[in-house]
Design a protein around this nucleic acid. Structure first.
Lengths: 130, 130
DNA sequence: CAAAACGAATTACAAGCGTAATCTTTTGCT
DNA sequence: AGCAAAAGATTACGCTTGTAATTCGTTTTG
């Protein structure tokens, strides 16, 4: 399982949004919010390459980079990690925590309801086909 | 804001459950699940001390350690961090993610329902007293 | 063609981390 | 009193990370 660092993940975010991109485009995209030197981004790209998190394909004198590690998988990995590390792997306390500490909007609410329904359905299925 | 590492957080977990404890008790508690040398745990305790995450009080020839950093605050910190890093700070996608990737049990379900109700009430309040 | 410019690859370097080993101080025991 | 055992303090060491700078190879350009 590929582990990427905080800074590396910023680079991935860019690639997850549009890919393939060449180094210059990535640097530009990152310059807006982070404040990294061009060389820094190049280093991160290299490390991501070595880790197998991205792929580089030659295009003339430059490379085009694309993600290999999938965003969804990475999110799953990171979420699971937090769950284990901080909440003993139990989701309920984590959810409770979010209720207490984050302000939720309409969309969050809709998402929560869908969650509840999904679980109910899932539990019903379990009963029907044992 | 105090930043503690993965390994350090294991030590904190022990102290959050029972404190104060002396080094030996902490080492014993950790030996069960991790597989750390006594010296390793001592190092971690020292680092936590320097970071101000715990407090040590002399008791005869040894120290009794207690947490200073609160568990709830740490959880909040870590959760927020994940939310920002991995989900652009938006809760809904994160919740959706959990639906798709984690198996939820009865207790999670109850917790979720309570959550939904709490939020609905909260939203109603907003409407009534603008 | 020689030099400059650009992109990529290699190297740098301090701080943090995981994982201890060694050193120092205190103290209980003979 | 002298020494071994125990607890804590200091030091170690290789790896990762954040943050670049330097070097190398290839084009482009005067």
């Amino acid at each position: 399982m590929i582990r990427i660092s905080e800074a590396e993940s910023r680079v991935m975010q860019v690639l997850w949004q549009h890919a393939p991109l060449d180094a210059e485009a990535i640097i530009r995209a990152l310059a807006e919010h982070n404040d990294w030197h061009e060389k820094t981004v190049k280093t991160l790209l290299n490390r991501l390459l070595r880790k197998g998190a991205i792929h580089a394909e030659r295009d003339g004198r430059r490379y085009l980079y694309s993600p290999l590690l999938e965003r969804d998988d990475w999110q799953a990995e990171e979420s699971r990690n937090l769950l284990e590390r901080a909440f003993d792997g139990r989701l309920a306390p984590m959810l409770a925590h979010f209720t207490r500490h984050e302000k939720l909007d309409e969309q969050d609410l809709r998402e929560l309801r869908r969650l509840v329904e999904a679980i109910e359905r899932q539990h019903d299925d379990d009963k029907e086909s044992p």
